[in-house]
Design a binder for these strands. Structure first.
Length: 350
DNA sequence: AATTCGGGGCC
DNA sequence: GGCCCAGAATT
């Protein structure tokens, strides 16, 4: 049994590092190229509980539209929320904008370069602060994400279930973090977790840490890390109202900043509960219920959304929401469940 | 310590 | 269907 070292992983990373739009490859980093802290921060926020494949196009659109943190700070809320639509966890988008504005107003447009400074920013927690500090500012901070938890649990054959095991796994990860190339090391562990030490059927035979891995020796790698079982998801019901005006405008409303889909554009409707909640339609009209419902699963419940549609004239006055004309309303600004409802309604209007 | 927050890709 | 994902904020 050998001992796991950061050096062994870095040598693997020098050859096998994945390519990502926000990443500076190890060879370029060695030649002195520094990552843009704005790019690292934005990619890390987008990557929270989100796959690299899902993030890539969003990252490219955001950085093309807002090339600097000052550009982003000057954006309208609705622009940023619309550009984030479909990526999920919309509190991230609200905090992204808050954070950009804080960097401009409180830090002279430069991201703090310490763990504590980064932790003070909205939407930046222990993981993201360590990622930006190590990758963008070359500080020896320890990133602990799902990949690191899995790699450490296997490397040391830890059977304590998550999340209880997190402090122990964090300590094990910290003990391995090197003083030199901490950013490359952080990305190397995550690449290892994403490509070799995967949740199912890990490729232990080609792992740079196959020698020192305790779980490989014990044969327990595929079943680690253990996790406490999660609660079943209930089903909730609701109604969404899609009103189309004769000029092509649609009746939409901005959801409150807190809670589910907070800050996002959506169709007026009932609350979502075990039964259809009592409510008043957003507009007095002849509503038609579509035969198909929109089905959608959120983090903690399934939703079956009944869709009601109507055509109204130019003089229609809504109780709630605003009619957005075609040149203002982009369906891509809608979160996914609202877009599903729109797709059903659109086939009705067509 | 538990819960609330999205969405998609993979079995 | 459930599981996973470069988690953070709230209660």
């Amino acid at each position: 049994m050998t001992t796991a070292t950061a050096q062994d992983l870095l040598e693997w990373y020098d050859i096998h590092a994945r390519t990502m739009p926000w990443r500076v490859p190890p060879a370029a980093r060695a030649a002195g190229v520094r990552p843009d802290p704005y790019h690292i921060w934005m990619s890390e926020v987008m990557l929270q509980q989100t796959t690299v494949a899902a993030v890539r196009d969003y990252f490219l659109r955001f950085t093309a539209r807002w090339p600097t943190v000052a550009d982003l700070a000057a954006a309208e809320d609705a622009e940023v929320m619309g550009e984030w639509a479909g990526l999920g966890y919309y509190a991230r988008a609200r905090n992204l904008l808050k954070c950009a504005r804080a960097v401009v107003s409180d830090h002279g447009g430069q991201f703090p370069d310490t763990l504590a400074g980064l932790l003070s920013l909205p939407g930046v927690g222990p993981y993201t602060a360590a990622a930006v500090a190590s990758i963008a500012f070359d500080r020896p901070e320890t990133v602990v994400d799902g990949n690191v938890e899995r790699v450490m649990a296997r490397l040391h054959d830890v059977h304590t279930p998550l999340p209880a095991a997190k402090p122990a796994l964090t300590a094990l990860a910290a003990a391995l973090t090197p003083a030199t190339r901490p950013g490359d090391y952080a990305q190397a562990v995550m690449d290892l977790g994403a490509t070799i030490c995967t949740p199912r059927s890990p490729a232990c035979g080609i792992c740079p840490w196959r020698g020192p891995c305790a779980a490989r020796l014990a044969g327990t790698a595929p079943e680690l890390p253990k996790k406490t079982p999660k609660k079943p998801k209930p089903t909730r019901l609701g109604i969404a109202y899609v009103a189309r005006r004769s000029d092509g405008a649609y009746l939409l409303e901005r959801r409150p900043d807190r809670g589910l889909l907070g800050g996002m554009l959506g169709w007026p409707g009932s609350d979502w509960a075990e039964e259809i909640a009592p409510h008043v339609p957003p507009l007095e009209a002849d509503w038609q219920t579509l035969s198909a419902e929109a089905r959608h699963t959120f983090t903690h419940f399934h939703l079956i959304l009944q869709v009601r549609v109507t055509d109204v004239g130019l003089n229609a006055v809504p109780r709630t929401g605003d009619f957005l004309p075609p040149e203002v309303f982009r369906p891509s600004d809608l979160p996914t469940v609202m877009r599903k409802a729109f797709d059903l309604a659109r086939s009705h209007f067509a």
